[in-house]
């Protein structure tokens, strides 16, 4: 038993060292520590996996899955790099930069940067009743009618979810994701 315990400890240490070496993100520029928007780009992709869209949300059966960035783009090239080659339920992923909330009706996910804070009600109104997942970079986004908002908690990216907004749009979110998120309801 002593021998096997020692072996366990040794193996564990080896695993830790090995994993620490891998805690980096491979990019075109080389290996670097992931930034906040690297994480958020991955999260946007993950949202696509934990939320279900009705078929009516797509123009055609083979229409791509569009992730749109409304207004100024904080990701740079990260988002495109992250989404490259990925598919959602057989659909190709595409990124689009849009300027007006009305353009967002053909998107499946709309990311609203901090620059759009003033246009929030307009965005919400434009997409009301449509199966478009709205994601805001601002914590208050969900309180003001958005569906998901990012939040930084001790430099870790966390998410808030407004389930009511999601329900109204005809989308459904996995309970797994809901479990991880802080549930927020819209402020009147």
């Amino acid at each position: 038993m002593v021998t096997s315990s020692r072996r366990l400890v040794a193996g564990l240490l080896a695993a830790l060292v090995w994993s620490a070496a891998l805690r980096t993100v491979p990019t075109a520029a080389g290996t670097r520590t992931p930034t906040e928007y690297d994480v958020k780009a991955v999260y946007l992709l993950n949202f696509a996996r934990f939320v279900e869209w009705p078929d009516a949300g797509f123009a055609t059966a083979t229409a791509p899955f569009a992730i749109c960035v409304l207004g100024s783009d904080p990701f740079g090239s990260t988002l495109d790099e992250t989404l490259a080659g990925e598919t959602i339920a057989g659909r190709n992923l595409v990124t689009r930069r849009i300027a007006h909330p009305t353009d967002a009706t053909t998107c499946q996910i709309v990311f609203t940067g901090a620059s759009e804070t003033t246009r929030l009600p307009a965005i919400v109104d434009a997409l009301a009743g449509r199966p478009v997942l709205t994601v805001g970079d601002e914590t208050a986004f969900t309180q003001r009618g958005g569906m998901i908002s990012f939040r930084l908690e001790q430099s870790t990216v966390r998410i808030d979810v407004n389930p009511e907004a999601i329900r109204r749009s005809g989308l459904s979110m996995s309970s797994q994701l809901l479990r991880l998120a802080r549930i927020v309801s819209a402020q009147p």
Binding site: V39, V42, Y43, N46, R49, F50, T156, V157, R158, I159, S174, Q176, L177, R179, L180
Partner: peptide, 14 residues
């Protein structure tokens, strides 16, 4: 199955 989301969203606590 249950912990997939917590990995994907980097939530070790969950």
């Amino acid at each position: 199955l249950v912990s997939a989301a917590s990995i994907l969203f980097d939530d070790p606590k969950a």
